[in-house]
């Protein structure tokens, strides 16, 4: 799972000289929330987000109505954008989880993807990460989704995998994470295609030391 596979390639980009109002129009027309600002050779010079375009009351408290209009009309993208050095970015060969961590830690909703010399090759947004989760858990096709809880010990997962293999079942999606509110345990979500809930319940509930937290058929 690499950034290059989940990013949106060829994002809409604007030049720093563009009027802010026009950038705003482009964002609303195309239903996008981030606009990388690029200079010569598609090099990143900044980022415009919806928040950056929102009016800042302190900036124009002293202006009258006409002046506000003129102020807004003449504002360029360069004036409202977040400059490149403040923008968090990531490379196309980085992993998706690395990107997720960066976004979570920095509380940003998107990362421009830059190649080695600062050229924008794509953009990775929250939505793209959500898509990665879907893919990881096999959200694309129908199957039985089962959540198993097991102690954090070696060999526990192997036991589960062996059981599945013995019955000739495949795994189309898998996720593993520390069990919420239960220290020392892990939960594993697996999605198994072409089986029924009953079959799975019967087999997996027999595994000693593991507990079936949830089972359902999902698409």
């Amino acid at each position: 799972m690499f950034v290059k596979d989940y990013m949106t390639r060829h994002p809409i980009m604007v030049a720093p000289e563009m009027r802010a109002t026009e950038a705003q129009k482009i964002m609303s027309e195309n239903k996008i929330r981030h606009l990388p600002v690029v200079g010569e050779g598609k090099r990143l010079v900044g980022l415009v987000t919806r928040q950056r375009l929102a009016l800042k009351p302190d900036a124009m408290a002293s202006l009258n109505v006409w002046e506000i209009t003129r102020f807004l009309a003449n504002m360029s993208v360069r004036q409202v954008m977040l400059a490149a050095k403040q923008v968090h970015t990531i490379g196309p060969d980085n992993t998706v989880e690395r990107a997720a961590r960066l976004m979570a830690e920095q509380k940003v909703s998107c990362l421009p993807v830059l190649d080695g010399d600062g050229v924008v090759v794509g953009i990775l947004s929250e939505v793209d990460l959500l898509r990665a989760i879907q893919d990881m858990l096999g959200m694309t096709a129908e199957g039985v989704r089962v959540t198993m809880q097991m102690p954090d010990e070696k060999g526990q997962f192997a036991r589960l995998a062996t059981t599945l293999a013995e019955h000739g079942w495949g795994i189309m999606g898998i996720g593993s994470y520390p069990a919420p509110r239960r220290a020392g345990y892990y939960q594993i979500v697996v999605k198994i295609p072409q089986v029924t809930v009953e079959q799975v319940r019967e087999v997996l509930s027999q595994i000693p030391g593991q507990e079936m937290v949830d089972i359902r058929t999902v698409v």
Binding site: I12, V14, A15, E17, I26
Partner: peptide, 21 residues
């Protein structure tokens, strides 16, 4: 193109928009 109108635009901006993309 990429949300931006090409008709009626001239000069540098248009050239760069096209040249790179």
């Amino acid at each position: 193109f990429q949300g931006q109108e090409l008709v009626g635009k001239t000069g540098e901006a248009l050239r760069r928009l096209r040249g790179d993309q």
